[in-house]
Amino acid sequence: MTGTAVPPITPRGEEARYYERLRAHEVTYQGCADCDSVIFPLRTVCPGCGSESLEDRVSSGRGSIHSFTTQHRAGHPLLADRVPYTLVLVDLDEGFRVMADLPGVDPESVAVGQSVEAWFDDIDERLTVLRFRRAGEDS
């Protein structure tokens, strides 16, 4: 456990299930049994066809940087001692996009298209947060 503080969240229902799976170090997305849509964030109905027949799938955690920004101001008081920090939108290989961060990188070295892989930050006894590192780098 890193003990890193993060802004509080209140996940409910399928959101809570996503975080339960993160706790087991799995990134969960969904596939629709009726129309093959890839779905993220988790839903109760398919936005492609309205089906309720959705199945949870586990992502490889591998993807590429769709875009990024390095913030020189904190987005929350709990993150004040981390600035500057770099946030990323990652296109996962399975075809969905997540927001996360890329801790500890040199901001100048980050570029659109770089390969990244997921890692799991166990914040405390209950919460695990998804983060990324560049493929082949240590986090």
Binding site: V6, P7, P8, I9, T10, P11, R12, E15, Y18, Y19, P41, H66, S67, F68, T69, T70, Q71, R73, A74, G75, H76, L78, L79, R82, Y85, L87, L89, V98, M99, A100, D101, V112, V129
Partner: peptide
Amino acid sequence: PYEAPYGLIHPIGAFGMVANR
């Protein structure tokens, strides 16, 4: 719950990503 843990400043953090893209 999917975005809040990372401290994106709304809205400038998002627009930084739009600009980089």
